[in-house]
Amino acid sequence: MTLLVSICIGVIFAVSFYLLMGKELKEVAMGVFLIGHAANLGILAMSGQPLMVVGSLVEPKGPPILGTGRPMVDPLPQALILTAIVIGFAVVAFLLTLLVATYRRTHELWIDDLAAEGNPAFLIDGATERKNAAA
């Protein structure tokens, strides 16, 4: 199970980095969407029984809030993930809004063309052809 989750996290990270390196903003937005999931899954994989480090020893302790000795899943990482999900949600919403605003204003969703306008130094060969090919 641990192996499976680790592989999942690795694959999601790889896919999201591939998307983030794309030249089209929609791909980048999907990359942002995925990378948050990868990080959250990573935290979930880290969590387990609540642990406490004493000296060199790692020993289980009760959940911090209930204080019963019964072993149960550590609630704190899940709280962290919930917060991170909410924040990630807001960020993706912002990014998509920005995407729409950019498209309305410039009719461009290719980052090279966007940067090239007004600053020819940024013009990278073939950006326009690639866009035409994709269209």
């Binding site: 983030l20 903003l25 980048v28 942002v32 990378i35 948050g36 990868a38 990080a39 959250n40 990573g42 935290i43 880290m46 969590s47 990482p77 962290l80 991170a84 924040i87 960020v91 912002f94 990014l95 920005l98 605003a101 950019t102 204003r105 410039t106 980052i111 966007l114 940067a115 306008e117 007004g118 600053n119 940024f122």
Partner: peptide
């Protein structure tokens, strides 16, 4: 121009935040 630069800033900081939350976990 500003929009193009905003994307650079947003994406870079998003990657930073993701690494931060992972490191915190």
């Amino acid at each position: 121009e500003q929009l193009a630069q905003t994307y650079k800033y947003v994406i870079l900081n998003l990657i930073g935040s993701t690494i931060f939350v992972l490191a915190a976990g």
